[in-house]
Computed example of a mutant assay.
Amino acid sequence: MTHGGRFAVTERTVPGLPGDPGVSLLICTPIGVPGPRPAIYHTHGGGMFTGDHRIGLGDLLGTADRFGATLLSVGYRLAPENPYPAPIDDVYAGLLWTAEHGDELGIDPQRIIAAGTSAGGGLTAALALRVRDQGGPRLLGQWLMCPMLDDRNNSGSVRQMAGRDIWDATWNGVGWTALLGDARGGPDVPPYAAPARATDLSGLPSAFTDAGSAESLRDEAMAYAARIWQAGGQAELHIWSGGYHVFDWTAPDARVSRAAREARISWLDRLLATD
């Protein structure tokens, strides 16, 4: 967790939104790196119903080390015990606290990159929409890795990969039902629950989106990037040939996994260099 002693790691409970419980933040601060530093604000995966803010941090700590960034990982309430809007409320509250305490944390609130994988990618996209609409720090970027964006669970890739991908239509349906209950797939699902429902994708931070060609969430990732472009925004999209859901976690030494990590680093390098 300390990446070979290169990070000081603390855990804090910060205020939630009014009426909500506190939100747990894991704060990984690079040792010996002067501030104000950029920050990676991470939201974990797990289908909306499992996981915690310690999973998926290995590569992210290496990335934070490379850029001299602070890594913060938010522990949001899980569905179905805590359905929408509890998860996104917690992610939003944690970001607001992070920006408000930039001096204390040694970070630049104008250089926060929100990042997430799978369910965390969907919550990261929802966070970018909510910050745009309701206020908060100007996110420098939104880093969406195989994001879970569309509760309707009926894209071409969902149908194509049914029973094949490790996160197939059945599991995807379980996750969305945990979050939304009987509202899943209906006409009134809000974009802060399922970002694919947003009608306006203008005014969002620069996005990096990727997915595997052989995963259920491929088509919704492609559609989201395309709609950002159509709205005049900036997005970078990669579809990795042969990749299945979270292939880079389960096969980290595969050539395609190394290529995916290199593309993400390249985007971050350009994003931080041009800010």
Rank of each mutant, 00 (worst) to 15 (best):
T209V: 15
S202L: 11
Y224S: 04
Q234N: 09
R218D: 12
G203P: 12
R227G: 11
T199V: 13
A226Q: 15
A198D: 15
Q234T: 13
S206A: 15
S213H: 02
I239S: 03
S216V: 05
S202T: 14
I239K: 00
S241L: 14
T209N: 01
A226W: 14
A198P: 15
G242E: 12
A235I: 13
R218Q: 11
E220G: 02
A225N: 01
R218C: 13
S216F: 02
W229E: 00
E215K: 00
A226G: 14
I239R: 00
A231H: 12
S241T: 12
A196P: 11
Q234I: 11
Y224W: 14
M222L: 07
P205L: 07
A225G: 02
R227L: 07
L204N: 02
T209A: 10
Y224G: 03
E215T: 05
S213E: 15
L204M: 09
G203Y: 08
S213L: 09
L237Y: 09
A196I: 10
A223D: 15
Y224T: 07
L237Q: 03
A207H: 02
A198L: 11
L201R: 01
S206M: 07
L201A: 04
A226P: 14
G242T: 07
Y224P: 11
L217R: 00
I228S: 01
Q230L: 13
D219R: 00
P205S: 03
A231E: 08
G243E: 14
S202Q: 10
M222C: 13
E215Y: 06
